[in-house]
Design a protein around this nucleic acid. Structure first.
Lengths: 151, 151
DNA sequence: CCAGGCTAGTTGATACGTCAACCTTGTCGT
DNA sequence: ACGACAAGGTTGACGTATCAACTAGCCTGG
């Protein structure tokens, strides 16, 4: 197996730096404007997308592609801060149903607004339509690749 | 400020999924083959690139673009595991100098090999040269953008 | 129907990251 | 020369991520 070429290594470095910086600024933007972490945000948005602002924990877990213990810890903290509630599930009493509190709903909307605006500002405003399409295509290609070699 | 278009939102989602999956597989690859975390790896490689396998903590911090407390915590853990040592700096007794232990050096080389091979396998093998160049250009564009709006 | 295994979720331990407070040492203006 | 301030690092507290072990409810073959 040959080493990476200089060109490849440079591209990889740029990607890594971009990745770190980007989640840095987006995360700080969220924290500053709403006091939420990205994990909080992901959960709130995912739940808010469901009818009734409530969803089975299992479905949430699959949608987010999170470890079950990660979700469990995160939900515990969010419940303590009054963003969500947890009830035991009707159909399967092993399961639990997550529901947004009014405060959770409010923050979800607020955060979504700020977040999208930041993505617009930091990403969409800088890339040409061709670049954006190229990025999507690259991402989907790599996702397929990972999927395949890991199944 | 207009909402993101469907196309933009889809591209962003793909990027996010790719980002998460990719660091997931690369991280697990490192852990499996060498027992190192990505943080360990970044430090070991950065130090190993220096003459004498040693470097001023400050320089390391700048190179990695890490918070100072992050580096401090990380170095403490790595010192405990026998990967590095810390001595007080000659020229400036506030500072400290990080040095690889033999074991640290060995792991740095081993890990570098596995990591590059994984990048090759998961990324380079799937992308056309055009896609790779496009990715690098996108990353550099966004890095500039973040740099500018944040200075 | 019931024993084994499977599944949903929780818990505890440990590692990682960030923030703010702190300590020590250098530096610079006066 | 000295006092204030800045810089390099450490520490503690807290939130976050992962792994492994566990609990409890469901389901299926015999």
């Amino acid at each position: 197996m040959a080493d990476l070429t200089d060109h490849q290594a440079a591209a990889w470095t740029s990607y890594q730096r971009m990745r770190v910086r980007l989640s840095g600024v987006l995360g700080r933007e969220l924290a500053r404007t709403t006091g939420l972490s990205e994990a909080d945000f992901d959960v709130l948005v995912a739940v808010h997308e469901r009818p009734d602002d409530s969803v089975r924990a299992l479905a949430l877990r699959c949608g987010l592609e999170w470890e079950k213990s990660r979700l469990s810890h995160q939900l515990r903290r969010m419940e303590q801060r009054g963003l969500i509630t947890r009830e035991t599930c009707e159909e399967d009493s092993r399961g639990s149903v997550v529901r947004l509190t009014p405060r959770g709903r409010e923050l979800a909307c607020e955060a979504r607004k700020h977040y999208d605006e930041a993505v617009q500002r930091y990403v969409m405003d800088s890339l040409t339509p061709e670049q954006l399409s190229a990025l999507a295509e690259i991402a989907d290609t790599l996702l397929d690749r990972i999927e395949i070699t890991h199944k």
